[in-house]
Design a protein around this nucleic acid. Structure first.
Lengths: 130, 130
DNA sequence: CAATATAGTCAGTTAGACTGACCATATGTC
DNA sequence: GACATATGGTCAGTCTAACTGACTATATTG
């Protein structure tokens, strides 16, 4: 799936994005007002150093903008730019098409159940583990 | 899951094994007469160079043995040693315990369905893709 | 028997994470 | 209000698990 995503990105001409950047873009998609690096790192369960690097890439390529937090001089607010939102929309449409293909091949019911099980595993098993 | 596997290996005292070595050990488990490096690489969908390295590690640590193929002087046959089989047994038992824990947390039926869907996705979607 | 295919290795590279040490600013405590 | 501690973030370096390309040796095929 990661490979498929990489191929689609390349075809779609979204330069400078790689599958790994999803760890930043996905949580930002649900935070229209932006988020801090530490928050994004926690959301994607990677270190803040790693998230910092992803965000730096995305800023250089124009997908996010950084705004210094007015309340807390240590912090930056990361927010999707118009280009970032455009990528987000296209990526969601892509993942939709993938699921539709799966539905044709193994059945829509099975795909829906699979999604639900993945969510349950995340919430009931993995997030409660350590 | 990879982290959990790594922790379990460390606790169990199987020295020199890492999660990545599963790519060699798993297909060997189903081939009591051994297999060639190229065959193992194909089975786990990694390059033969990568598989070669995994096999070299495992041989050094005593989990597999290499026998030059008598029919084909270019080839080696890789086979689990007694120690390798012992690891394989323990690893299967571990993965069983994981599934049992999942079953308690999200229901046995759901886990069984999940397994089946993963198999279907592999066979009907991914292996037919490229 | 020449051309091509196959098994495997060697050397070097890459992606995507990680740890540890650090600086700057906030926050809580006495 | 000062000090101790917590928090947001960066810099530098490392590590794992893969990859590509170039190669050798042996088999197979036309």
């Amino acid at each position: 799936m990661t490979d498929a995503l990489a191929r689609w990105i390349a075809e779609s001409g979204f330069e400078g994005v790689k599958p790994a950047h999803s760890a930043a873009i996905q949580p930002l998609w649900e935070r229209p007002d932006g988020a801090r690096i530490t928050e994004l790192a926690r959301a994607s369960r990677i270190t803040k150093q790693s998230m910092s690097a992803l965000v730096a890439d995305l800023e250089a390529a124009g997908y996010v903008e950084l705004i210094r937090d007015t309340q807390d001089a240590r912090a930056v607010r990361v927010r999707l730019t118009a280009r970032g939102r455009s990528y987000g929309r296209a990526a969601r449409a892509f993942s939709h098409r993938i699921e539709e293909r799966w539905a044709r091949q193994i059945g829509a019911r099975r795909v829906a159940e699979f999604r639900k099980t993945l969510e349950l595993l995340r919430n009931e098993v993995f997030l409660k583990a350590d």
